[in-house]
Design a protein around this nucleic acid. Structure first.
Lengths: 187, 187
DNA sequence: CTACGACGTAACGGTTGCGTTCCGCCGTTT
DNA sequence: AAACGGCGGAACGCAACCGTTACGTCGTAG
């Protein structure tokens, strides 16, 4: 019954509005305005702001990202770092994610949705990456995927999304070497 | 002329309000209510919300933290990790910092204030910690303090403030070993 | 003792957003 | 041809907050 093009327009408007003003200041009226749509069209689909945002965010978050398999751990790692650092440079990630993370500290429902998406992602990446490396004998058998993911994603997120400092040409290279050494030492 | 105890009450109210509802939803009226103070008392001190929050935050951010000097790099590192991880467990840090960081993505003035505080802190910690280790011969001479700081603070911030997962007993130990190896390899 | 000024309270007009309702339009279904 | 239902638009009453103002109280400085 509901028109699909209208739904798409609303979803886009929500994402853009989220990026521009954040969840806290996002208003249904602004979304309607931006989507070129009546408020009624929105309330016909969701009953309030939280429900609307959660449904839209969940959809986006559940899109799966292809995991690297280049044949060597350092290759996998380089590629992963490249993918993540590229993603974190886009507005979608660099604005919306920190905003929702901050919001999650107050709203259990947002927290749960985000954590699930995040943890699933992390686990998948960590287990595949580390599992492959261990199978190849490049990392010791006891390597903890969880700690490994922290070591890999943490610094990138910190630098790009928190400190918001640029990444120079050789940074990812240096970083790959460092992380490899760290994981070998930790086993 | 302005009464000091009132100013203190307002500052506390702002910090608590920031932690609870975040910058976006912080209202002057709520601050006044919480501080048990009239709005006039606030407007007599600051002309608007942004100015008020920035001044208060700047003050807090500029408080200097004593840097470790335990005599060895791994000792320094362990202590630093302990200090940071403890700080990040408190509401003040785990709620307010991500919130302001997200806000900074939109408000250049907030961004600048936070970046200055952050960068100053980072540089001080990085240069002292790495400098000491290099002087002792524990790290190679070319070690980049900036990358080192990313490697140290990034994973902790990620785990505690983003992923919001607990830190187990041996995590910091493992982590210390890993980071040490990473820095040695990177030189 | 007086004057000053910071204080809390209360009210102001104006803005924004909520969630709801009613309307007339128009494309689809039957 | 008629009925249905999603659509945009407009307005509703309600609530919160903005930044400002007027007023009366009270502690302190002169």
């Amino acid at each position: 019954m509901l028109r699909g093009d209208i739904t798409v327009a609303i979803r886009n408007a929500v994402m853009n509005e989220l990026a521009e003003v954040g969840y806290g200041r996002l208003s249904i009226e602004a979304v309607a305005r931006r989507a070129g749509v009546g408020k009624t069209a929105i309330y016909r689909r969701w009953s309030n702001k939280l429900e609307m945002v959660m449904e839209i965010i969940s959809d986006v978050a559940e899109r799966k990202v292809p995991l690297p398999d280049t044949g060597s751990f350092s290759g996998d790692l380089s590629l992963l770092l490249l993918i993540v650092s590229t993603a974190l440079r886009h507005r979608m990630a660099s604005q919306i994610i920190p905003d929702l993370m901050a919001e999650a500290a107050r709203n259990p429902q947002i927290a749960e949705t985000l954590q699930r998406a995040l943890r699933t992602h992390q686990q998948a990446v960590g287990e595949k990456l580390i599992g492959q490396a261990v199978a190849r004998g490049e990392l010791p058998a006891g390597t903890d995927p969880e700690v490994a993911v922290d070591l890999i994603l943490g610094p990138l997120y910190w630098r790009l999304a928190v400190a918001r400092q640029p990444i120079e040409d050789d940074y990812l290279e240096k970083f790959t070497v460092a992380v490899t050494a760290a994981l070998r030492a930790m086993g």
